[in-house]
Nucleic acid binder design. Structure first.
Lengths: 241, 241
DNA sequence: TAGTGGTCTAGACCACAAA
DNA sequence: TTGTGGTCTAGACCACTAA
């Protein structure tokens, strides 16, 4: 139900309710959503508010409205991958592969110049570093090098992050919600070190992604370098206009 | 002004008016837009309609609203690249490089199986093929292999497509407007043939993009393979959620 | 304090799909 | 013909910014 004394807008509360019904699987792809008039009645808000909530779902591609028919839950598409922040685990689920993780390295370090610039901190600022090997169906798929601003998440490296997602820990323990990110994508040749870890040959092509993630207040929190095996990993997206 | 007897919704007409002011440069990045109350007065529509028009601009990242201050025109960002269809020429402009093109090959052929599947036509359907070398500041940047369904654009290969964009010709001569596309992105090693054309070594990493473009009626029209040099080309995008 | 955008309401009429 | 979403209006109160 909608909290009428909450600071969170009604339309956003309603969006969260509807979103949960979809992501939890209570409403399946192809299902007809309740009519706007029903939702308006059930949650005691105006039609404009219902539509504002549903607009978010439409924008995210989770539902489709059809005049005269109703609104329907969409199939989740891999295309969403490229405009949504998803975890490795989610990603593998969409690709129908079994994910696993090995922590290769973790520790504190002083920010080198290039990382400091991405995270908008001073060179030498203390960072938490985590290097993980990601496997799909038991085969090496990617290397993930994460750098976190340590003063925002003291003690973050105490956990193992093999079973618990890092994003979840950041949210629960430190109130850091990563809501947006910018990334660049290019093709590079594997260094001998990365090649060995991914069980490929040095020089083999990698999809190399650099990503900076931002919290609610648009502050950089995490910088990641992904090295994805070119023979096993592809990105998908949709273009418009 | 807004046509009150048009079939186009008021909010969309208003969006087009505002969009034009921005893309034409009449309103520059950083400029303050008129207040919602002014627009409502000037165009004689309700506030909800004004907001609906501005919502489109916000979604596209063209303006930012700031409570208590006003709405401002944003800087155009390269990040838009990955969710908009842009031409090579536009792309190079954004990257501040001088684009040029060489046509390496053109002709008709029977659709092989993989291309037929992408374009949803029968194997053997007649296709127009165009292979172009794209250069940035005179240096090879990418190879573009385009396949068009020939019956939708008979005689399309008569033009040279060095100076005139292919998309423009499709629109003007055949009424084919490419409005959406799906693509996959991966890293591959350059074949000896591609390497020679791009003036790199065989085995060097390439950003390999396969794209299917669709017209208004969601029919596939064009299939392209891009081979971008890994050392010269990167994609950028923003993620949300 | 005045002006801005953020949210919300309670209506209205329309075009379209399905029965 | 009925019910759906698409569009539009004319208000209202609020939180925030800047003077």
């Amino acid at each position: 139900m909608i909290q009428r004394n909450s600071k969170i807008p009604f339309y956003y509360q309603l969006y969260e309710i509807l979103n949960k019904k979809i992501t939890s699987g209570e409403w399946q792809p192809g299902d007809l959503l309740p009519a706007e008039s029903e939702l308006l009645e059930k949650y005691q808000v105006s039609r404009a508010t219902v539509r504002q909530a549903m607009d978010i779902l439409v924008t995210k591609g989770q539902i489709t409205r059809e005049r005269g028919r109703g609104s329907f839950v969409n199939e989740p598409t891999i295309e969403q991958t490229l405009s949504r922040i998803i975890s490795f685990t989610e990603d593998m689920k969409q690709r129908d592969m079994k994910p696993s993780t090995q922590v290769l390295d973790k520790g504190l370090l002083s920010a080198p110049e290039d990382v400091a610039e991405q995270l908008q901190v001073k060179v030498g600022e203390e960072l938490a570093h985590l290097r993980r090997l990601r496997l799909a169906d038991g085969e090496p798929m990617s290397i993930e090098d994460s750098y976190l601003i340590h003063r925002l998440c003291e003690g973050v490296l105490d956990q193992d992050y093999v079973s618990q997602p890092l994003r979840e820990a950041l949210s629960k323990r430190y109130g850091l919600r990563l809501v947006s990110a910018r990334q660049s994508i290019r093709a590079v040749a594997a260094s001998p070190e990365i090649a060995m870890l991914l069980k490929i040959e040095a020089g083999d092509p990698l999809l190399f992604i650099k990503r900076v993630s931002y919290d609610n207040d648009n502050r950089p929190v995490e910088f990641i370098r992904f090295y994805h095996r070119g023979d096993r990993y592809a990105l998908y997206n949709e273009l418009t206009d």
